[in-house]
Amino acid sequence: MDLAPTPEQQAVQSQARRFLAAELTRERLAAFDREPAGHDAAFWRDVAALGWFGFGLPEACGGQGASILDVGLLLEECGRAVAPHGVFAAIGGALAVDTLASTAQKRVWLPALAAGQRHATIAVAERHAVNDPRAFATVLSRRGNGLVLRGAKWCVPQAVTADVFLVVARYRRGGCAVLVPADTPGVSVRPLGTLGKDRQSVVAFDGVTLPAGALCGRPAAVWSRWERLRRRLAMLLCAEMVGGPRRRSR
């Protein structure tokens, strides 16, 4: 096992380090604190142009096909510079769509997510959180040829800027995942004050009507896939954390 970064990985890291050090000045970070999104549009465009949002996505949908280790090394740099939370949320949201969504959904969403033109986020946690889909109070049911989603998800990262929510809900006696565009009637976002400088919200689904195609694959397979994805996201978060204490003074 060789854990030393390759020259290619070092190049990605040093480019990211230079970019973030130049952009994220003290004044800029203080200005971001006052933005509802936690960043501004110019920063988002610049990050998108660097290809970070599609870095770990398949090349066939506009990504760069980087491994999870490569994405982790990039996130180390984000942690070092305490980059806005939206970057991690968007990278994680796009990976979640790539892991859980149906082929048809991926065709629609992944190119835009990879380019940073659209932003997906994950809505799983609930107020009375138990990590078991059978205990979820957010429930998907069938109505005619379509679906209805009722309930609320808590602590949804970066919901204020999300174009689509990947919701893990209860379906019959197990779990399921659905993709819900943020502008669907019945969807509402309420920002949640948190201790950190992250942007979390409560996202409520008030009898939201969805087409059958909103379902991400077979519900029976979703929970084990989500658990695998949660482990991958936890590791990417670890990579970001590892970067934090490596900060150098300017």
Binding site: L3, L69, D70, G72, R231, A234, M235, C238, V242
Partner: peptide, 24 residues
């Protein structure tokens, strides 16, 4: 070290549940 080890195992497609738990 534990983070890079777990990420490397994931990237190589190796079982990593134990390493992930340690790392997080």
């Amino acid at each position: 070290h534990v983070t890079r080890h777990a990420l490397w195992r994931l990237a190589e497609g190796l079982p990593a549940d134990r390493e992930i738990a340690i790392a997080k």
